[in-house]
Design a protein around this nucleic acid. Structure first.
Lengths: 151, 151
DNA sequence: GTAATATCAAGAATTATTCTAATTAAAATC
DNA sequence: GATTTTAATTAGAATAATTCTTGATATTAC
């Protein structure tokens, strides 16, 4: 049921297990955009970047592709407050740190052998399928530079 | 600068430190709604409940009040995915558990002397001002009842 | 009591996202 | 390799939560 598809055209990344989905040109383009610069672009930003390689792609398709890729487990959707969703190709368990000064989103790795759920007193019998941790504050860069963006 | 206002009318809860803001009838009504049933209503749900006590209140005012109360630190805004924000009056540090079956949001306390940030390998010099932890899964009730809502 | 300021209400506007319907592309079958 | 079937793409309309705008109404300061 789960097969591998080879990319139908030249691309920067190797072949990817795409599950039941077809690896179309558009999905490949969106996937490549996310891997080219590993910041955390919004759908619109992905759209702008994808258009450089594929001017015919539409915003609706970018939304579709991002959803498909998310369902396939190839990218993660990142939500900070009520702002536009951002997307990231980091598949390791990680949290997100949002710097209020430079407005950047950083990935934060889980410490070796640490457990993100451990600090929380869940009732017996709860089943956790998914944890999302979002931190907000000031990143080391902005801190050193005297909080330029906000001061 | 930070003063106490007494409520301008009868109400269920005691006087509250409201910071620089005025405790108006509308804000009090919204505040009371959140304390009456400690579930996690959306702005629209708060609106519906507040109208029972104050039929003249508008949705825009409910949004304004919720924002004011949030800024004053008296309620917390809870965001799960891209769905409508929910509001909760629990001021203790806590996470939220969203049951995909009954669609309820539960508060999850921090274990005694546990630290929500500890599992995360933040770069030196990061300053965390705020942490938001959202878990998704199945609550003990739904688990016992054979996942009625989804199966 | 009057002036200054803050809040409220109603509806318009905005924004991210999803839906719809028609076209196009890809895979399966002949 | 041509045809059929199925899935994906596109453009634009629709939606939903939220914010903004403007004028009216309270509340505090003087």
């Amino acid at each position: 049921m789960v097969e591998k598809f080879k990319e139908p055209q030249d691309s920067q990344t190797a072949e990817v297990d795409f599950g039941d989905f077809r690896m179309t040109k558009q999905r490949r383009a969106v996937f490549d955009v996310l891997h080219a610069e590993r910041d955390h672009p919004t759908a619109s930003e992905v759209y702008i970047r994808a258009k450089e390689q594929m001017p015919s792609i539409s915003l609706a398709t970018v939304y579709n592709c991002l959803e498909t890729l998310t369902q396939a487990g190839l990218v993660k959707q990142v939500n900070v407050d009520r702002e536009a969703s951002r997307y990231c190709p980091n598949l390791k368990p990680h949290a997100h740190f949002f710097c209020s000064h430079c407005q950047e989103v950083y990935d934060v790795d889980l410490r070796p052998s640490a457990d993100a759920v451990e600090p929380w007193a869940l009732p017996e019998g709860s089943i956790v399928e998914h944890v999302e941790v979002a931190m907000k504050g000031c990143c080391p860069n902005c801190r050193g530079a005297g909080t330029k963006a906000n001061a």
